[in-house]
Design a protein around this nucleic acid. Structure first.
Lengths: 195, 195
DNA sequence: GGGCTCATGTAAGTGGTTACATGATTAT
DNA sequence: ATAATCATGTAACCACTTACATGAGCCC
């Protein structure tokens, strides 16, 4: 009975705390989203399947008068999570990086356009860094509360994206140094302004 | 008429050289696979669609007696490629990193198991580094031949994966320093050996 | 002759996103 | 009152992988 991709995040999210599907989604969006995403369309059906397989238990736990179902790991669920975590299977690693693909093909572009491609990639990763920096305080609190690993992955995301920003900056420099401006002396002083 | 994901790699692969579907697949597997993959099941149908859209032209170009169809960009195809490359649309960036997900949940594990998780991730990226180093000479040749950007992305892959390896090594150190071996003084001298 | 690589495709299935439907509760 | 958030789900669709089918030429 192989664990699905979504199954892995779900069991992991329930490792210490029973949660609702909604809360799992919140957690994923707020922390693992950058390296492992999940949508409602996957979470709810998978929670049902994990229930059938006996890996999670559901319990009604309304907040105020609002209906709410929290899920917690069964013993089998805890075992399945552990088995996956220690499994020596090769690790899934998939990337789809449009910015880098553009760089790959940038030799068809004029030098200023190629430069813009790299700048756009840098801007993207600078924005990611900013978003990660914004959640850093929460991670510090978590770390104080004994949870060391989630903050570690935040550190990872920050370091990695900063490395990418630096790489882009370096390439931008090399490009503007190596490739001279095209027609730097193209003033239009000869064309009279129409207004 | 929006360009699909596969469409992007295909048009890019044809930017300078007409190629067969088979050759496109070879190229992708040998270079962009680490950040943008594509399978035959996508490439052939998409080549047909791009033909209908007038973005590529097909020409029979058998090698020896073996049938072969090469595709080249039409003017419209060249324009579509250029439009995509300079488009300011937000860049697709998707990652699915199972190693990091395991690290995220590693607080449920015993300290030696958590250490093993990080080591496994490091091993994975060390293998990637080795594979990329193996193709470095080809990239050097390409660079000499005027194509500067594909080798740049190889550099990127190398640098990034080396950074990850270093991060893992650092975390491993911190883990083995900060978390003492569990029961370091559990010698069984009191239990007489049965043989 | 047998196995490998070149070469082109299709069919079935999987994994995932997006949009929608519904409804209660809380905050402004 | 109404907008935002909490909460649970489903249906349609899209992207992608895997496996298969087919066949020719190449190398030993």
């Amino acid at each position: 009975m192989e664990l699905t991709n979504v199954g892995k995040v779900i069991l992991g999210s329930l490792r210490a705390t029973p949660r609702s599907g909604y809360e799992i989604k919140q957690l994923v969006d707020g922390s693992t989203r950058f390296f492992w995403a999940a949508s409602y369309g996957q979470i709810y059906p998978e929670l049902a399947r994990l229930g059938v397989q006996g890996l999670v238990e559901r319990e009604s736990a309304p907040t105020g008068g609002r209906r709410r179902t929290v899920h917690s790991l069964t013993e089998a669920g805890r075992r399945a999570l552990h088995d996956w975590l220690v499994s020596p299977e090769p690790l899934t690693m998939e990337v789809r990086d449009e910015g880098l693909l553009k760089v790959f093909f940038a030799d068809t572009l004029a030098s200023d356009e190629a430069l813009a491609v790299v700048r756009a990639k840098r801007a993207h990763h600078e924005a990611v860094v900013a978003r990660l920096e914004a959640v850093e305080p929460y991670a510090a609190a978590e770390r104080a509360g004994g949870q060391a690993f989630p903050p570690l992955t935040l550190e990872y995301g920050l370091g990695l994206n900063r490395w990418i920003v630096a790489w882009c900056a370096d390439v931008e420099e090399r490009l503007s140094a190596g490739l001279p401006e095209r027609q730097p002396r193209q003033e239009r002083a000869d064309v009279p302004s129409t207004r």
